[in-house]
């Protein structure tokens, strides 16, 4: 018997799952589709424009930095771009999207060496930079109101107050309305329903760990019930309000679960989720900013290495607290 050519020799295992970084990222994009769709339905063409610009700039920035012509590459830049777009208000000017998307990729990711090495969630770095730079556009009291199914309407014209800027007024929106997403807010954050659908897809595909969103949303709910301001007759309603209002849902399901910037240990992920919830509520209730999800997740990203070091799981058959 003759073997033509040479054999490949490698370490075991010799079979690999077909899953790749790219396929994971595509799954995340699929998961974000309902939210993106809702954004377009609610906020019209401006939403679509923002998303297209953000994704295009993100992919372009990454391709240029890496000097590769493969624009889509592993898809992570597209995910970053889309996430950033979904975390922007509908009426932001185009140049703001460009700056945000480019800084997300460059300052949030590439300076650390690219995918896998970034410490902070790139999309949130981009968003935080925008919030700090152009607070008026990003976190003012004036937000475009949604106009369901009016694709051609210009979001910049009609405005309303975000529910978080003045929670007392929130009662004007019913919780079901908030759940569906028919309220003023950032593009992708208003529809808890669409976000949940995508979230279930990610859990089904095994890409996210329920502990992070669970810990995050659970903490926000409990703190909302206890300290939420009690502007609903039922304090549990207040808790729910804090969960569906603002960026908690999108943050908990898509941003706090970003692989690269969150702990790898199960216990660490729970701590991470709870920490995000705590800081979010701290900022919401006592800070001057109406919303704290972005900063909460960034802060927890920063302590992720420390969490990882303190939550090394007990090995199978290991004695608890062994030397």
């Amino acid at each position: 018997m003759v073997i033509n050519g040479k054999l490949i020799v490698s370490s075991s295992p010799h079979i690999r799952s077909v899953e790749s970084v790219q396929s994971v990222m595509v799954d995340v994009l699929i998961a974000l589709f309902p939210a993106a769709l809702m954004a377009v339905l609610l906020f019209g063409y401006r939403a679509l424009l923002t998303m297209v610009i953000a994704i295009a700039v993100a992919m372009l920035a990454e391709a240029i930095w890496r000097r590769k012509s493969d624009i889509f590459s592993d898809g992570s830049a597209a995910v970053t771009g889309l996430l950033l777009a979904l975390a922007l208000p509908a009426a932001v000017p185009w140049w703001l999207v460009v700056v945000g998307s480019a800084s997300a990729i460059i300052i949030g990711k590439q300076v650390f060496g690219g995918i896998g090495y970034n410490i902070f969630n790139p999309a949130l770095v981009g968003r935080a930079i925008l919030v700090v730079s152009w607070g008026g556009h990003m976190a003012g009291d004036i937000w475009p109101s949604p106009q369901p199914f009016a694709f051609g309407y210009d979001a910049a014209v009609v405005t309303g107050a975000t529910v978080l800027a003045a929670p007392e007024k929130a009662v004007t929106f019913s919780l079901p309305e908030m759940f569906i997403g028919n309220i003023p807010g950032c593009l992708g954050e208003t529809s808890a329903l669409a976000l949940l659908i995508g979230g279930f897809w990610l859990v089904y595909k095994g890409h996210i760990d329920y502990r992070i969103p669970g810990g995050f949303i659970g903490t926000v709910f409990i703190l909302g019930v206890l300290f939420g301001g009690g502007f609903y007759a039922n304090i549990f309603m207040t808790g729910l309000f804090h969960v569906v209002a603002g960026g908690v849902m999108i943050g908990a399901i898509y941003m706090a679960t970003d692989f690269v910037t969150t702990p790898v240990t199960p216990a660490g992920r729970l701590i991470f989720g709870i920490g995000c919830g705590l800081i979010t509520m701290l900022i919401r209730l006592w800070g001057i900013l109406p919303e704290g999800v972005t900063f909460a997740i960034l802060l927890m990203n920063a302590v992720t290495p420390i969490i990882d070091n303190f939550t090394i799981p007990q090995r199978f058959g290991g004695v608890k607290k062994s030397a």
Binding site: K6, L7, I8, V9, S10, S11
Partner: peptide
Amino acid sequence: ADRFIYEGVKNCAVAGRFY
């Protein structure tokens, strides 16, 4: 000449141990 194609960790010390 090469004897076979090596796939894995790109490190001489490791690859050298492989056959």
